[in-house]
Simulated assay, not measured.
Amino acid sequence: MRYRVRHITEYSYGAPVSLCYNMAHLLPRDTHNQRCIYQKVQINPPPVYQSEGEDYFGNQTFYFSIQEAHKKLVIDVRTDFEISAIDVTALLKNSLLTCGELRALLDMPTTPELRMAKEYLLDSPQIRRSDDLKDYAQSLFTDQACVLQAAMDFTHKIFSEFKFDPNTTTVATPLEQVLKQRSGVCQDFAHLAIGCLRSVGIPARYMSGYLETLPPPGQEKLVGADASHAWFAVYTPEFGWVEFDPTNDVMPNEQHIVTAWGRDYADVSPLQGVIFEGGGSQQLSVSVDVRRV
């Protein structure tokens, strides 16, 4: 499957900004089943400095600075991907490693991959392990349960027991509040799942990207109707990192496009930076369009 993605981020400021420095996670990364074949970044006003690189997690980044007064900043990113299908049914069927066996391997890691995976058992800027999170998940992640099947069952549990509601949380909403109110958005559900998994000793990381959405039969797809999406991945020595989407109760496949991964949203936020002088009130507008080519 081939996709074309256009992601437009627009900031409007109440007062002119004289100078800004920014780092963006908007460029796609190659994975075992995804390959980027084209990418183009346009920034207005034009930056005086721009460079691309990689962060600690291997995600593509680009840095830029604008040194002229501006009341609007527009970042227009266009990318083309090729994505191959994953036999997720076979993954679940052929996975034999139990949660108890995985925890034992992590206690005495013998490979670089296991040692690196232990990083995703620790607390991170937006995710803290807790007894409440452990209590919510531990019945599914017993020592005898297969890791991937337990993760799929847990994905279904979140999907069934939580309501998607963009009006009940913000980027800073604590996981305990999300757990209590049983509502949130994809970022909340990914953070919740990761916090629960780490609390029961299973490595989990945050996945950021896009999800193709298809219109009802007979209706035209609206430009810009897609959005950034978040899900999580679990590590096993058998298959590496395996992804799960609790917002949609699926294992991601051809319709999920990965841009970045990290410990939580703070590691991979689409745009972060600083502005000098001016700014005042600001409005953010984001438009994402994902199309099959």
Rank of each mutant, 00 (worst) to 15 (best):
H25F: 09
G279E: 05
E52Y: 14
P252L: 01
R2S: 12
L284T: 04
R6K: 10
T155C: 07
S287L: 09
T155D: 01
Q60D: 10
S160A: 15
W261M: 13
R129H: 10
I66E: 00
A90F: 09
R115A: 14
G58R: 08
E119L: 14
L179R: 01
M116H: 15
K40G: 11
E68A: 12
E82D: 07
R115N: 11
R198Q: 05
G218P: 04
I127N: 00
Y235R: 12
H156V: 06
I43A: 12
A227R: 00
V268A: 01
P28T: 04
E10A: 14
T155N: 09
A172H: 13
D123M: 04
Y56H: 13
P28V: 03
E212T: 03
L91E: 06
D143L: 06
N44V: 11
C36D: 13
D153I: 00
K93V: 11
L102P: 08
E113L: 10
V41F: 04
A15I: 01
L192E: 05
M116N: 15
I194F: 09
K134C: 10
I257H: 07
V178I: 11
K71A: 14
M23K: 10
C36T: 15
R182G: 08
G209E: 03
Y13E: 02
D135K: 14
T213H: 06
Q42G: 03
C186L: 11
D153Y: 01
Y49I: 15
D131F: 03
A24M: 04
D123I: 08
S208K: 01
P166F: 04
L284K: 09
Q187V: 01
F154G: 01
P47M: 04
G278N: 03
Q272T: 13
M152Q: 11
T168Y: 04
S269Q: 10
C146M: 12
P166M: 06
T170Q: 13
T89A: 15
S208I: 02
D289K: 02
C146K: 14
H256V: 02
I202Q: 00
D245M: 02
V286Q: 03
V268M: 01
I158F: 01
P46M: 15
V178L: 07
T110H: 11
A266N: 12
V258N: 13
A104T: 11
G201P: 08
L73E: 02
E220T: 13
V288G: 00
Y11L: 07
